[in-house]
Write a protein that binds this DNA or RNA. Structure first.
Length: 650
RNA sequence: GCCGCAGUAGCUCAGUGGUAGAGCGCACCCUUGGUAAGGGUGAGGUCGGGAGUUCAAUCCUCCCCUGCGGCACCA
């Protein structure tokens, strides 16, 4: 055997990594939890082949240890559940980020009390330090075993294992599970204080909604109690940043029963929205886009022509008129309209007005397009998934040869926008042709190459997702990373060979022939609603000054300063700053506390001294004390800082 | 849409088979206070909607709506 440091060791035939560890040292024998043989994680008890490269894995090897601990937690939990309720049928339980889940089939739902009982039972199992044994079974024996034990899901799983692959059974105590492995040496290697059962949820067997809904229990597990606590703390942090909570606390927006999934923007929320929209408008104009506005209610005929009626009908809001006599007399009863779920067909209508020449291309039509989609009730989530939303949408009509340059320009624009908005990193994914698609292979070749070359020319890393493109063309998806490391897919760039054809878009080329343009769908933010949700969570409500709804509050210390405060606010507003006066009959402590909690970036306290000196005492959000500045000086500083990033002088 | 949980004052939440409570917020009064809660008084609820059981329902049962956590969906 060769060890990681290059040393070699000779072991008797049939020896395992455990034997090897014991041969090296007593402490290693105790610390070893698995082995990496020729780069593959295996059970410590697995026999070694002659000449193998062996690295012993201990709890110090983070990635491997977590994988093993979480995996064993899944099994120990399943065993605990079956010990508590022998009728429960087991299914699958994989390792996921931070932990694991296991799906069970049980008539009665698991309660919170049940979770506590399961956790307790798991700790008992861990305390038993039952050795984990593995056996390789014949397929028929495994099927017969599970049939005899009334485990239909396991029977199905055994059947799904490809021919030629070994069927492994893992045992600890009297309990067994079908599993690929590897596992820890004994159940006692799972730290008993570093895991926690988190929640119960429904999940379809094999992820298919036509199948039975099972009960999934989620757990998290780490190597130490400290790591677990750090993780729970991080969850609290995410909770603290939740845009729904912050949206209420900062009075940005609300949602209500009468309009599920549609946002009521409050003055402060709408201020942030407009700051973002104005910024985007300037960026788009600078990049050569023309802004348009198209109807929200459009006759069914257009949606039939575009193909949306056939393929997207279930997600569309359709207008209907009651059949009562009065309503029947309504002129609109004769036609069926739909709220637009996307802007593209309308944009083609704009394009189609007037015959276009190749000299007009590329034509970039942008719209802050208000769309409605009938999202299923269970999928809505605050601002992140809504039924009424506004896309920063645009469609570029161009020739096939222009795709690459347009794509490169788009990525540059997107990168600038993300940077301006405080997101440093983003990932790119290229999705290529799926099985069923429109357009010739030649066109697909050209478009896929164009997208790929555009990314490469910019020297950006990317991933390819083969077969994941839309039926109408290849696409790029852009995922940004927020302040606490979460990823959000926002930007998209999609070539479309379908819609121009369906809606009969054309242009005259330099040979005086009428040909189809390529249509490029693209968005940077995705939807304003969702992006604002992301911004709120990214900043935890503490927006940079240029986006903050209230930028400055002028708070009086005594009522003697009321007049001066009004003057300061007027001066700030004249300079374009969103400022308000707080002249309420409250102490300065109270005002500071309240506006700090409201995340106002700057509080200017004014009392007798400030009136006298024509100054302001500036307290910045998060800072402890204040700094006295002359009024003019403060104005200048705020104006500079409140300037949107695209308008700043280099 | 599916599974589970929840819905009580503007917000956060307590509570009981006999017509409801706290803190914060809000209004008014006193206080003019120098950087994260000064004091007092008061208003405010069809206990998500509907049906049922009961002498009596905010509480028990059923249906619906909405929200929350997942799953499924996201041409």
């Amino acid at each position: 055997m060769t060890l990681p440091d290059g040393a070699t060791r000779t072991m008797p035939a049939g020896a395992s990594s455990a034997d090897l560890a014991a041969d090296i040292s007593k402490s290693l024998a105790k610390a070893a939890i698995a082995a990496k043989v020729d780069g593959r994680l295996v059970d410590l008890t697995a026999p070694l082949e002659d000449g193998a490269q062996v690295a012993l894995v201990t709890m110090k090897d983070e990635a491997e240890a977590l994988e093993l601990v979480r995996h064993d937690c899944a099994h120990i939990m399943a065993r605990a559940v079956q010990e508590l309720w022998p009728d429960v049928k087991v299914t699958i339980g994989p390792v996921i980020d931070n932990g694991w889940f296991y799906d069970f089939d049980r008539e009665e739902p698991f309660s919170t009390d049940d979770l506590a009982a399961i956790e307790k039972k798991m700790r008992e199992i861990i305390a038993k330090r039952d050795p984990v044994r593995t056996e390789v079974w014949e397929r028929d024996a495994a099927v017969a075993f599970y049939e005899a034990n009334g485990e239909p899901y396991k029977v199905e799983l055994v059947g799904a294992i490809p021919e030629g692959e070994k069927i492994r059974m893992y045992w600890h105590g009297d309990w067994q599970d079908l599993c690929r492995g590897p596992h820890l040496v004994h159940t006692g290697q799972v730290p008993p204080d570093a895991f926690k059962l988190m929640k119960v949820a429904g999940a379809y067997w094999r992820g298919d909604h036509r199948n039975k809904m099972l009960q999934r229990i989620y757990g998290v597990a780490f190597r130490s109690r400290k790591d677990l606590e750090a993780h729970l703390h991080q969850l609290e942090e995410a909770e603290r940043r939740d845009h729904r909570r912050i949206g209420r606390e900062m009075d940005l927006f609300h949602l209500q029963d009468e309009a599920p999934g549609m946002v009521f923007w409050h003055p402060d929320g709408w201020t942030v929205y407009r700051a973002l929209e104005d910024y985007m408008r300037r960026r788009l104009t600078l990049a050569g886009y023309k802004e348009i506005k198209t109807p929200q209610v459009v006759d069914r005929k257009l949606w039939e022509a575009s193909g949306h009626w056939e393929n997207y009908h279930e997600n569309m809001f359709i207008t209907e008129v009651d059949e009562g006599s009065e309503a029947g007399a309504h002129a609109n009863a004769k036609r069926t309209n739909a709220l637009k779920p996307m802007n593209c067909p309308c944009h083609v209508q704009v394009y189609n007005q007037g015959l276009k020449s190749y000299r007009d291309l590329p034509l970039r039509l942008a719209e802050f397009g208000s769309c409605h989609r009938y999202e299923s009730s269970g999928s809505m989530h605050g601002l992140m998934r809504v039924r009424g939303f506004t896309q920063d949408d645009a469609h570029i009509f161009c020739t096939e040869d222009q795709i690459e340059a347009e794509c490169a320009d788009f990525i540059r624009l997107l990168s600038t926008v993300y940077t301006d908005l405080g997101f440093e990193d983003f990932d790119i994914k290229l999705s290529t042709r799926p099985e069923t698609r429109v357009g010739s292979d030649a066109v697909w070749d050209k478009a896929e190459t164009a997208l790929e070359k555009a990314i490469q020319a910019l020297g950006l890393p990317y991933e390819v997702d083969p077969g994941e493109g839309a039926f109408y063309g290849p696409k790029l998806d852009f995922k940004l990373t927020d302040a606490i490391g979460r990823e959000w897919q926002c930007g998209t760039f999609q070539a479309d060979f379908n819609l121009p054809d369906r809606l009969d878009a054309e242009y005259v080329n330099d040979q005086d022939e009428r040909v189809r343009p390529v249509m490029l769908h693209r968005a940077i933010l995705g939807s304003f609603e969702r992006f604002l949700g992301i911004l709120i969570e990214n900043h935890a409500g503490r927006f940079p000054l240029w986006l903050a709804p209230k930028q400055v509050v002028v708070a009086t210390i005594t009522s003697d300063a009321d007049g001066y405060a009004a003057e300061v606010v007027a001066a700030l507003r004249a300079a374009g700053i969103r400022a308000e006066a707080d002249t309420r009959n409250e102490k300065i402590n109270y005002k500071v506390r309240e506006h700090s909690l409201a995340k106002v970036p700057a509080i200017l306290a004014v009392g007798r001294q400030e009136v006298e000196n024509r100054s302001v005492a500036v307290r910045r959000l998060g800072a402890q004390g204040s700094k006295v500045l002359g009024l003019e000086e403060a104005l200048e500083a705020f104006v500079a800082e409140a300037t949107p990033p695209d308008l700043r002088k280099a």
